Amino acid sequence: MNKTSPWFHVGMIPFTLLYISPLIFVIGVSLRPFDDITMRGLAALPAALSFEGFSTAFDAGTRGALLNSALVTVVTVIFTLLLASMAAFALSRFRIPFRRSILLIMLAGNLLPPQILLIPVAKIAEGIGIYDTLLALIVVQIGFGLGFYTFVLHGFMRGIPREVFEAAVVDGAGAIRTYGQIVLPLCRPALAALGALATTWVFNDLIWAMTVLRTETKFPITAALLNLQGSFVSKWNVVAAGSILAAIPPAVVFFLFQKHFVSGLLVGANK
C-alpha cells in the first residue's frame, strides 16, 4: 500500500490509537480528583477535572527534582558532545597510533551491563570525594556516554571530503580553527541528533542516580518519582501527574530538535 494513499492513513489510525492509549489513560488519571478515583474506580471516565494531582506532586519535591534533572542534563549534554567531538576530530584526522583500537575500546565500554559497575562506580565516587553530589552524577553520565558519541561523530567526520581540510590548510587554518569553524558546523545535524538522544537518556536515567546519590533533595526527577510512588502509593492521580511532569521536558526537547534529529539520521544513512 502506498504511504501517500489515504487508505494507508485510515489503516494506521487503530495502531496510532493503540500506541497513544496508555498516555491518554495516564493524562486522564492525572486530571481526576482523588475522591472521584476512589468512588468510581481507576478505569472510569472522569466525572470532573482537577489539577489537584499536579499541585500535590509539584509540592512534594517534584519542582526541585526537575531543576536537578535539568541542571544535570544540560551540563552533561554540553560537555559530552564537546569532548566527544574533539576526540572524534582527533581520531578521524590525525595519525594516532592504535586509533581503531581506541575507538573499539571506547565503544566496548558502553556494551558492559551497568549492573556490574554499580559498586565500583560508587566506591570511586566515594574515593575522590564527590559521592552524593550532582557533580558525581554528571561525571558518571559523561563517562558512560562519551564512547558512544565519539564513535558516532567519528563516522560523520570521516565522511567529510578531504578536499575541505586541504582547502583549510591552504587558507592557513590550524587544527583548532578547522575544528571550530569547519568541522562543527558540518556536523551540526549529527550533534543535534545526538543532543536529542542524550537529553532523553540522561533526563530519564534512574540507575546511576540511585548509585551515586543518597540525599533526597539532590535526586533527579526519576528518583523523586520513585519516592513519590512510595509516599502516595494509593493516590494514583498524584503519581500520574508526577509522571506527566517528568515526561514534558524531554518531549519538548525532542520535538524542538525533531527536524535536526531526522536529518542527522538521514545523513548517517547516506554516509
Score class of each variant (00 low, 15 high):
Arg158Pro: 00
Phe232Ser: 07
Gly28Pro: 05
Gly242Asp: 07
Leu191Cys: 05
Gln141Ile: 03
Ile105Arg: 06
Ile221Glu: 10
Leu191Gln: 06
Pro220Leu: 02
Val152His: 04
Gly127Tyr: 09
Tyr19Ser: 08
Glu216Val: 03
Leu256Lys: 06
Val262Leu: 15
Gly180Leu: 10
Ile221Ala: 03
Thr62Arg: 00
Pro33Arg: 08
Val74Asp: 09
Leu245Ala: 10
Gly264His: 14
Gly64His: 04
Gly129Ile: 09
Ile13Asn: 09
Ala246Val: 04
Lys271Asn: 06
Leu66His: 08
Val233Trp: 07
Val252Tyr: 03
Leu31Asp: 04
Asp205Ala: 05
Phe255Ile: 02
Ala43Val: 11
Pro33His: 12
Val262Trp: 15
Phe219Lys: 01
Leu186Asn: 15
Ile160Met: 06
Leu103Asp: 09
Gly64Pro: 04
Val253Phe: 09
Val262Ile: 15
Val164Gly: 03
Lys218Glu: 01
Val267Trp: 06
Ile248Met: 06
Leu228Tyr: 11
Ser69Asp: 12
Gly28Asn: 13
Ser30Arg: 07
Phe219Asp: 05
Gly195Asn: 09
Leu66Phe: 12
Thr133Pro: 01
Val140Phe: 05
Thr38Ser: 13
Ser234Asp: 10
Ser55Leu: 12
Phe94Asn: 10
Arg188Cys: 05
Asn110Val: 15
Leu256Thr: 09
Leu186Tyr: 10
Ile176Asp: 13
Ser30Gln: 06
Arg188Thr: 13
Ile24Leu: 15
Ile248His: 02
Gln258Cys: 02
Glu52Gln: 15
Asn227Ile: 09
Val74Trp: 02
Ser21Phe: 14
Val239His: 11
Leu91Ile: 04
Val29Ile: 14
Leu118Phe: 02
Thr215Asn: 00
Leu265Val: 13
Ser101Asp: 01
Val74Arg: 02
Ser263Gly: 14
Leu197Glu: 08
Gly28Ile: 04
Val77Ala: 11
Ala57Leu: 12
Ala60Arg: 05
Phe34Ser: 14
Ala44Lys: 06
Thr222Phe: 00
Ser234Val: 03
Arg188Glu: 10
Trp208Ile: 02
Ala108Cys: 02
Val212His: 00
Lys218Ala: 01
Ala269Leu: 15
Leu17Tyr: 14
Pro22Thr: 07
Gln229Pro: 05
Pro114Leu: 01
Asp59Glu: 15
Ala209Pro: 00
Val140Tyr: 06
Lys123Gln: 14
Leu67Val: 13
Ile37Asp: 13
Leu191Phe: 02
Ala108Arg: 01
Glu52Tyr: 11
Leu117Arg: 00
Leu118Gly: 03
Ala88Pro: 00
Pro113Tyr: 08
Ile27Leu: 13
Gly195Arg: 11
Val140Gly: 08
Pro33Val: 08
Gln141Gly: 10
Val75Asp: 14
Val75Ala: 13
Phe151His: 07
Trp236Ile: 03
Tyr131Arg: 05
Gly174Tyr: 06
Ser21Leu: 14
Val140Gln: 10
Ser263Leu: 15
Leu265Phe: 10
Ala90Ile: 01
